[in-house]
Simulated assay, not measured.
Amino acid sequence: MTAVVGSATSDPRTAPAEDHDSVARRLLASSEQLSYDPRTEVDWDAPLDPGHHGASPEWSTLYGTPYWNELDERQRAELTRQESASVACTGIWFELILQQMVLRDIYARDRTSAEFQWALTEIADECRHSIMFARGAAKLNAPAYLPARHVLELGRLFKTVAWGEAAYAAILVAEEVLDVMQRDWMRDDRVAPFVRTINNIHVVEESRHMKFARDEVLQRMAVVGPVRRHASAVLVASAAHMIVTSMVSGRVYAEAGLDVARAKREAAGNEHYKALLRSSCRGLMDFLHHAGLLTPPAVAIYTRANLL
């Protein structure tokens, strides 16, 4: 987990935060030194080996279920390829929301500041990532997965009303969950090489985005009152619930040639997958707690989403 909370004081809301521009300058320098162009870094021309997975099998929503045990290796690989594509499409959906929130936040900021320039750099990264995810999903022979209609509409509402710390904390939640699973996938020889490259690019570049989001959350939470803190906590938790429950579309089971009703039923009761999600979010939940965003109502929402 990349969320670093061990160096914080017992209450980061009262700790002196690093100057925004200092953080932004360091991130800009890092971006200049280590950034990727997916158009040339990813081997888009390599044929897709049907034996390769799209994600580490252990991250499949069906892994460990009786249905998984009945599938042969090629069926399992096809399922993980569809699940990986679904995660990528969900990533595109939230990256589009992210870009709009960041643009709105910097709309009237000082154009000469490093913070303003970093925000535009982050948006440029996200544009490249979205294109990369889209090409990756197409190469996995997957359809254009989208969240359910009500989630799409709630996403429209969220990007319109999410304020300061709520917007950046939601960005952090989305990126942290993806970060942990993609770190596993990029090291797994069973996963298709081009997918591993995509994951590696995303992990490296998103580490900078998460650093900035954490800094923004802490600085903004240092000045909010109790009413806004509780409202932000619920808003962030609600966004997390939408993101996590939309990552793997139920349509992946049909695309993989499985019994959809049975697959959905067994996935819904898969304790292995739920435990993976909770484990991947341990550091994130520590950060949200110390930032003052893990209130009892938020805890209830995270628990329903299997993040706690």
Results as ranks from 00 to 15, higher is better:
residue 131 I to T: 12
residue 18 E to V: 13
residue 37 D to P: 06
residue 266 E to Q: 02
residue 236 V to F: 01
residue 23 V to E: 00
residue 65 T to I: 02
residue 142 A to W: 13
residue 166 A to Q: 15
residue 303 T to C: 05
residue 271 E to P: 13
residue 164 G to K: 01
residue 247 M to N: 06
residue 54 G to A: 02
residue 237 A to L: 05
residue 141 N to Q: 12
residue 70 E to I: 04
residue 80 T to K: 00
residue 203 V to H: 15
residue 304 R to C: 08
residue 28 L to D: 09
residue 85 A to R: 00
residue 26 R to W: 08
residue 70 E to R: 15
residue 37 D to F: 05
residue 262 R to F: 07
residue 50 P to S: 05
residue 33 Q to T: 06
residue 272 H to Q: 09
residue 241 H to L: 09
residue 33 Q to S: 05
residue 249 S to W: 00
residue 60 S to D: 06
residue 255 E to C: 09
residue 191 V to P: 06
residue 227 V to N: 07
residue 168 Y to L: 08
residue 271 E to I: 14
residue 243 I to C: 07
residue 163 W to K: 15
residue 305 A to N: 01
residue 52 H to C: 08
residue 90 T to I: 09
residue 290 H to A: 15
residue 73 E to P: 04
residue 180 V to M: 13
residue 160 T to Y: 07
residue 106 I to V: 03
residue 9 T to E: 13
residue 272 H to G: 12
residue 126 E to V: 04
residue 12 P to G: 04
residue 308 L to T: 07
residue 14 T to P: 10
residue 240 A to H: 02
residue 249 S to E: 02
residue 250 G to K: 11
residue 216 E to M: 08
residue 219 Q to W: 11
residue 222 A to E: 01
residue 115 E to C: 02
residue 154 L to V: 10
residue 76 R to F: 10
residue 168 Y to W: 14
residue 23 V to S: 01
residue 180 V to Q: 14
residue 298 A to C: 10
residue 264 K to V: 05
residue 199 N to L: 08
residue 180 V to F: 12
residue 300 A to S: 11
residue 47 P to Q: 15
residue 89 C to V: 14
residue 128 R to W: 09
residue 21 D to T: 13
residue 224 V to G: 02
residue 208 R to Q: 10
